[in-house]
Design a protein around this nucleic acid. Structure first.
Lengths: 214, 214, 214, 214
DNA sequence: TGCTAACCGAGACGGTACGTCTAGTCTTCGT
DNA sequence: ACGAAGACTAGACGTACCGTCTCGGTTAGCA
């Protein structure tokens, strides 16, 4: 399946390791596209990757962990925040990028499934948080600091309020896009993104609303 | 939900046991609480309900459809919108009620799972929409018309814009609460609800935010 | 076969449909031909006969009893012993008739199956004996008395010996034909029947062999 | 019986457990004794053998094939033909041994059942023939050659006649014993064996009985 | 003519077994 | 020491029949 490496390593160890990892994650994504989460099986992934099931279980604890890693790769590649010059453009941009990512069949079917599983599995929840959620949240922080630098948003009163507001904004953006895409099953297009962004900016800039005194 | 009540002529043969339906849905909820979505099995539900597996499959196509009906009942019971006197109070109320519902173990574990499955199953998606989503969306419409009657919100310019805005608001509210609860795994308490509501009302009453011309 | 016709008092209520009985037995034979014993189901027989399953169970205890009655009818129709003028011709005739009956798909598949079941079911064994076996054994007795009348066979020494010999001959004839047809799966044709009959008559007429002193 | 031992190269992967095979066949026989053919289930056999159902189905196509192999073992162990010095003694001996085998609960309940199934299943018929029937037929050939060596029976005129006669004798012996035991449900004791043997030897040594010219 | 009892169809019911599938582990050989 | 191959235990899957039951409705004989 894989070319025999010419490296004359004297001890047979793990020349496959890195290559196998990639093949497995690729196979996982391909299987997600074709079969969806619930029909995806470890045996099928192993066969696609040209790898024994043993090898999968040696590296991942199970289906959940494997899929999290497989889709996390996608988030790494596709989530970034180019500076588009204004807060509105930045938000619209990230909304559209995120929606595009969610619309891929491999993420669409996998993301909610692992979230569902994570309600019963603390380790999985932590893995999702570190592999996916925190990276997204970073975008919110980055966007806000840019907007504050541009003068579009006021500085926060305190570090605690800043964190709370960032969490709120993150949940609103990610939640709205996910809900629109997966639950309402309607497309997130330019029009929707503009409407949503207008609503959000209106809320953020309005009357100090985002920092409740309590 | 299962039968077509329009037919006035009773079909021949032994009628289905209404008691079994109730027992099955109760058992499903109990099993969700104890086992969670992924460990729930049809055989276990049947055993808890004191019913044969055949009876389950005669009424529901599978685990997905069964669980949708089981949690839909909870939405029926717990989702309502008492008039609290102001738009802010109404929104905070519905947010807290919805969060409370999502925090129940049976919904927490089941909701994202069936949504995930629905990405591959059109019939299931439709079932979720009619059994759960549309009822929630009704609350948004009700709340808005109350607010308009109170003068807190302006009337919509057109029916199309009204529907688009309602969908947007619905996705924002439901998405934010779901994301906060299940993905961020943080509590939706009074403070968060106030912050979120302030953000939303700010956006709604802000400069033309709710009606993008495009 | 099923009813007790001796009772002169007609029971109150609607009498059982005689037509249903016939339709059920016909349907059973047809199902045996098409499906064989193991694939035959009560529900299928009921559907073919245009009758509810309840009606079957009201008349027969189960699949075994039903099939015994269905094939017993065939034995009634096809087992007789026309006087062909000599012992040899009589035996060859009955062998060929019995073989022909066994070669029908409905008997071939059903007979051994009910015999197998009867090893664990005394009531079924009795039903087979009275409905099938005893009638066949009658043919042996009839054939022997004819042969004795013709002078082809000597009279028996005692009633006990007579009964024992008749049983032996019956088991030899029926057993050989059944074994040839179902186990060896070879045809019982005229040649085989002649060879078998010669063997049997040789044994019967030879040196008082059929009546061991013990 | 299950494997093709011709391949000298050991297939890759974990080899099948020989112990499991033995445990399964033992469990099958035990279940036949306790439950009989019709109540025997694959799941029960698996549980008795301490084996997963999958393992059964990996080796045998179903209940029929499994039971054939299980009873074939008994035939291997218990069917042999010690030289008792005379044709009569040899036949009586084999009749009694065969009857004893048939009287065991595991064979009594299973043999007719698989024969019945074999009327609809060519592969099963072939399996029964090779695993059981041919071995029995070998005994007939052996007994005849011994008798011919002793001068008790004449040599055959042709190979074809020899084969035909052997088949006939086999069907007569096996058929009579089976019919006596399972259909007539009467014991095969020494007296019956003597009577039957006398009948058979009389027929064999009688006037040209064994070689019909046609 | 109406009563009553047993019949009939249809089909839902609690059970049990089926044969398949997947998870995750274990064993063997080859490199 | 690792990897592929594949057998292993365990257990859920969804289906098929079993034999029973509950319906509404029918068909006799008796009053």
């Amino acid at each position: 399946m894989t070319s025999a490496p010419s490296s004359p390593s004297p001890r047979p160890g793990r020349p496959r390791s890195a290559e196998a990892d990639r093949a497995i994650l690729d196979a996982t994504r391909a299987a997600l596209v074709e079969l969806g989460w619930s029909k995806l099986t470890m045996g099928d992934v192993a066969a696609r990757a040209g790898v024994a099931k043993t090898t999968l279980y040696r590296r991942w604890a199970g289906k959940n962990a494997l899929v999290v890693d497989a889709v996390a790769d996608l988030f790494d590649e596709h989530l970034e925040l180019p500076d588009l010059g204004s807060l509105q453009a930045d938000i619209e941009g990230v909304v559209l990028r995120f929606a595009e990512l969610l619309d891929r069949p491999e993420t669409k079917t996998a993301l909610m499934a692992v979230v569902a599983e994570s309600t019963r599995d603390e380790a999985l929840r932590e893995r999702i948080r570190s592999a996916i959620v925190e990276r997204q949240k970073g975008l919110v922080l980055l966007g806000r600091s840019r907007a504050q630098a541009r003068g579009e948003l006021p500085a926060e009163e305190s570090a605690g309020a800043a964190a709370r507001t960032a969490d709120l904004i993150f949940d609103v953006i990610a939640g709205a896009v996910v809900h629109r895409t997966l639950v309402s099953a309607e497309p997130v297009d330019g029009e929707w993104a503009r409407g949503f962004t207008a609503l959000l900016i209106g809320g953020l800039s309005g009357a100090g609303a985002a920092s409740p005194s309590a």
